[in-house]
Design a protein around this nucleic acid. Structure first.
Lengths: 226, 226
DNA sequence: TAGATTGTTAATCGATTAACAATC
DNA sequence: TAGATTGTTAATCGATTAACAATC
């Protein structure tokens, strides 16, 4: 059972397979070949077969993959077959937006607590869950099993609060703060750096414009509108 | 000036360099060597030098890199040295959270419009910007230059609205909907698939638990709490 | 000048794609 | 059985790391 190391690239692709298989299920597609799926997803069939075979032989020669079965199996691999209690730290706009995200519940991600440092928010509720003050966190974590902490605090508070989470036994952090957390080996961090994503978009847009400067009409400004 | 193709991996790393250089500037650090930066960022010095040299020789032998200069140059490469007018499509929780994100303004990402399909929201304002109905979008895009459209609609509306954006000349979409948009070559899409990010976290957590099942106490349940 | 550190070439490593034998 | 398609090995491609000459 010694799992051979699965590459990060493969893991990042798994949720996308899961999404496509879910869509196929909704369309009542029963089976699909790596070739047909590759056309839908715009990846190579070879990659699909390689990726899936990291986890086991889910297909059948001459038949392809059973959609429902593969969906279920990938779900298990991703751990969405069990319930993951979550808390949110930081009840600002983003924290509240995530709290209101019903889609997560469908996958077993269940919000069980919201915390903030701002006393103005104390007692307010988001989706039926009362916002608590941070000082109540250690007690809460002793009394409730929590798998995942969502960090939606401004970066000046984030590092300190991450430490508090770790000190109280949290093993997985979904980090939206614009910092890289420095955590022990047994704590898993998944970063969502929105401003970096936006800058990547900005780079690609700027690059596209740079490349097309001298083709977009010969009126002197080269098509560069700013 | 024919730019040799820069790999996607390099581009994804640029905003992170930019962030670290910004922090160094705040700490009044004047110069830094690839070696010192590599320790801070936990990447190899070799990678830093390779990455930067895709865009030009920003350093100096025996000295290192001037922080302010490098920060400015990477800013230009990323296109954050100019203003990018943006609109939001979808004034739900996430759309509003992004609208309230002051940090973006600092980098030249300026919100100029918010649109939704829900008539209940008509006339409401977010951060001083009135929510408009989608049917006003084509006129708005004719009258205003808009660089980037942020798509924060549920997936059943997203595809159709993306098409509307493209038909009206939008060239860059920051997509938060859980679908892959099918766009022409001259339209740039940057995806933020939150549920996929959360599932990656869930995979890593589950994997960690699977690996440690037989070490966490010999009481039979193997330390697996669910 | 001597020391430091870049820019860049070469070596290594890892990930993707191609090919095909196995098998349903 | 014949056809289809997987699972898997081998080949290719690309990205990262190491090494070092150039040079400040």
């Amino acid at each position: 059972m010694d799992a051979k190391e699965i590459s990060k690239a493969v893991i990042k692709r798994l949720p996308r397979y899961y999404r496509y298989l879910g869509e196929l299920m909704e369309e009542n597609v029963e089976r699909i070949s790596s070739n047909d799926l590759s056309k839908k997803m715009r990846v190579t069939a070879s990659q699909i077969r390689q990726d899936l075979n990291n986890f086991g032989g889910f297909g059948q020669q001459g038949y392809g993959y059973n959609v429902r079965y593969l969906y279920t199996e990938i779900g298990k691999i991703l751990g969405v077959d069990s319930v993951h209690p979550m808390i949110i730290l930081g009840a600002g706009n983003l924290g509240q937006a995530l709290a209101n995200y019903v889609d997560f519940e469908k996958r077993g991600f269940r919000l069980v607590g919201i915390f903030d440092v701002n006393p103005v928010l104390e007692g307010m509720a988001v989706r039926g869950i009362e916002i608590q003050m941070i000082h109540e966190l250690p007690f809460f974590l002793r009394e409730n099993q929590v798998d995942i902490a969502i960090l939606t605090l401004p970066k000046n508070r984030a590092r300190e609060m991450a430490q508090l989470l770790i000190d109280n036994g949290i093993k997985a952090i979904w980090n939206f703060a614009h910092i890289d957390l420095d955590t022990p080996d047994d704590v898993i961090v998944e970063n969502v750096h929105l401003s970096e994503s936006l800058m990547t978009l900005s780079y690609n847009l700027s690059q596209y414009r740079r490349e097309h400067v001298n083709r977009a009409g010969e009126d002197g400004d080269g098509g560069n509108r700013l």
